[in-house]
């Protein structure tokens, strides 16, 4: 069957095409352009092939070593943050009341950290954690626990992780709560009739029914934590030493601090690819798991 052909339709799509062009295609192409060229300054660029990439992916080079270390840091950070936020978020979700005015109050309280801009979160924690005047830092030191996030890598890491947990557990909790809300009362009633205990209800009803939203939570939290920039940049600035220099922080240092455009471009492209690949892998594995269970 012939569709009525109407060329005017293209006119309506045009603004979107232009928008996509300027917002994503052109900037990415600029980066690709930088990543295969070198410059001697004065805007003289020449072809450099894949040399930037070769350097970057070889850990024995200076830039390659930095990249590998930062990548390991990123992966470790995402893993730790996910391992803390998921169980905590689920636990919080289960504790949220189901009826009455308390629902609204709890949800607002939980969502509060999510409403604060990234850099403000960083600033709050930067002051909060200061060993001399910060409530947290000073209190810990007062208790005899040696703590200094500008001197001690462990303290710095702990601060960043706790800050992220504080900032984002609410989102996991809200998603998990949405999953819990969708479970019909009949399931709880049936479980009570079957004599199931609280843990058993969680294990056999709540967790399976939350699975879909949790997959989304893991994806969102992974992407966000893997690309973390603002908060550590404000709190620790990547230090002490290189201890909290995540990929994004390092990238900015190379690109804007050292104006090493070729390396930075290659690095951001590889960084981007890694994020995409891991997300894709996550998604595939989880949807596959989902499907296999039906058999």
């Amino acid at each position: 069957m012939d569709k009525p052909l109407n060329n005017r339709a293209w006119l309506f799509v045009l603004p979107v095409l232009v928008f996509v062009l300027f917002s994503s295609l052109l900037p990415v192409m600029t980066v690709v352009n930088y990543s295969v060229q070198d410059t001697m300054g004065q805007n003289n660029f020449f072809w450099n092939g894949i040399a930037w990439f070769q350097n970057l992916l070889d850990p024995s080079t200076d830039i390659g070593g930095r990249f590998a270390n930062a990548l390991v840091r990123n992966l470790l950070f995402s893993f730790v943050v996910l391992a803390l936020e998921l169980p905590l978020g689920i636990a919080v979700a289960i504790c949220i009341p189901r009826h009455g005015w308390k629902v609204g109050a709890s949800l607002v309280a939980i969502a509060l950290p999510l409403l604060i801009p990234w850099n403000v979160v960083g600033t709050i924690w930067q002051i909060f954690a200061r060993a001399d005047i910060g409530l947290l830092g000073a209190a810990l030191n007062g208790l005899g626990i040696p703590y200094n996030d500008t001197q001690d890598p462990t303290s710095a890491w702990a601060t960043i992780v706790v800050m992220d947990v504080w900032h984002w557990t609410g989102m996991v909790a809200l998603l998990a709560y949405a999953g819990l809300k969708s479970i019909p009362d009949a399931f709880y009633q049936a479980a009570r009739i079957d004599g199931a205990g609280r843990w058993s209800i969680f294990r056999n009803i709540e967790l399976p029914k939350m699975q879909k939203v949790l997959v989304i939570a893991v994806l969102l939290r992974f992407m966000e934590s893997f690309m973390i920039y603002t908060e550590p940049s404000v709190v620790t600035g990547g230090g002490p030493g290189e201890s909290t220099s995540f990929l994004s922080l390092d990238l900015v240092k190379i690109a804007l601090g050292q104006v090493d455009l070729g390396n930075a471009a290659a690095m951001s492209l590889v960084y981007n690819l890694i994020t995409l690949t891991i997300c894709y892998a996550f998604f595939t594995v989880m949807t596959q798991l989902d499907r296999r269970k039906d058999v």
């Binding site: 019909p184 009949a186 399931f187 009633q189 049936a190 009739i193 079957d194 004599g195 199931a196 205990g197 058993s200 056999n204 009803i205 399976p208 029914k209 269970k293």
Partner: peptide
């Protein structure tokens, strides 16, 4: 008492056998 609801209530992650065993195990 035992109850059958309007919509089937089953434990998704379990096999049919495990579903049927569930109330007995709990007791």
């Amino acid at each position: 008492i035992a109850q059958v609801f309007q919509f089937p209530v089953i434990y998704d992650t379990m096999t049919v056998r495990e579903n049927l065993l569930f109330p007995l195990r709990n007791r």
